[in-house]
């Protein structure tokens, strides 16, 4: 328990120092007080008692982010084209993506990646199956190709 308290405290203190940029005694005392207050509050909510699911910062993460950025740009252009067309050409449909074999962190990564790319939107997670709303049949077809799922899976393996 204690090392997590210390880690949180250090992160909070670093954030405060970086953010305020003014190193007067009064402000430093205020910063210390708020750090202690936040840790006490976090303890009250049981933050230190639960397991933490965290993403391991592996070497494959930057590559994943770059790929995600590319996907975001691509789907943004797609959806912008749909919005700007004089006749609204949309075929909304609901697609299920089975991610029940993935660990919890990868599931969350996958669901958030799906939501981050416009045109697809995670609506519900039911025992590992994501219910995804797709704007057009093109975005639905893209999603069903399963590259997003494969990427999220390969992220876990490293």
């Amino acid at each position: 328990m204690s090392w997590r308290v210390i880690t949180l405290g250090l992160v909070l203190a670093a954030t405060w120092l970086l953010w305020s940029g003014i190193y007067k005694p009064l402000l430093l005392v205020l910063g210390l007080t708020s750090c202690v207050l936040v840790i006490l509050l976090a303890r009250r909510t049981g933050f230190f008692d639960q397991d933490v699911y965290s993403l391991r910062l592996g070497p494959s993460l930057p590559g994943y982010w770059l790929w995600l950025l590319k996907e975001i740009v691509k789907s943004n252009l797609q959806v912008a084209g749909v919005v700007l067309k004089p006749t609204l050409n949309i075929q909304p449909e609901v697609v299920n993506v089975d991610a029940s074999d993935l660990p919890l962190v990868s599931r969350a990564t996958l669901a958030n990646a799906i939501t981050l790319t416009p045109g697809t939107l995670t609506m519900d997670v039911d025992s590992g199956v994501l219910e995804v709303h797709c704007l057009t049949s093109a975005t639905a077809a893209d999603l069903q190709k399963g590259e997003m799922l494969a990427r999220a899976r390969s992220l876990e393996r490293t």
Binding site: V83, L88, L116, M123
Partner: peptide, 24 residues
């Protein structure tokens, strides 16, 4: 994205338009 949020016919499609402004 703002135009899309006004143009789209129902709630879920509007969310797609809103995520346009939120991401890129």
């Amino acid at each position: 994205g703002g135009v899309g949020a006004l143009r789209m016919p129902d709630f879920y499609t509007r969310m797609h338009a809103a995520s346009l402004t939120d991401t890129l």
